[in-house]
Amino acid sequence: MRITLTVNGRAHEVDVEPRDLLVYVLRERLGLTGTNIGCDTSTCGSCTVHVDGESIKSCTLLAVQCDGRAITTIEGLANGALHPVQEAFTSEHALQCGFCTPGMIMAAASRLNEVKDPTEEQIREGLEGNLCRCTGYHNIVKAVQKAAAAG
């Protein structure tokens, strides 16, 4: 099937099989390997991207379900300068091994789109679909708090 995906602002026409998962199309067809595949069972959140501005786990989404939709990956989040969440992850040391980081940042950015001035609890709830194998949650939450304060 031929579908159109607008990825990070650029339209791509791609031939896919119905069974192709979005994460594989992003990584293997479009070369956007910033989105990681972790558990592959919609548990860990490593593969989180935005579809029409909302966080979603791209390992549990068929690319054909996204035909005509706008997708943002970690590569497209920065707009010239780093996104405030990316900036805060750097300054607050919110990553150790870095594997969960793209998904964490996409989940956090989506949460901040929905809740402008979140409490710590609202941030933690917003990240409940993402696992950090280094258990570095404390600094991740601090980074999201900093990004929220920065607007």
């Binding site: 919609s42 959140g45 579809v51 989404l61 989940a107 989506s110 679909g129």
Partner: peptide, 8 residues
């Protein structure tokens, strides 16, 4: 689920 699941 979680926020990502609830978006779908």
């Amino acid at each position: 689920g979680d926020p990502q699941v609830r978006h779908a």
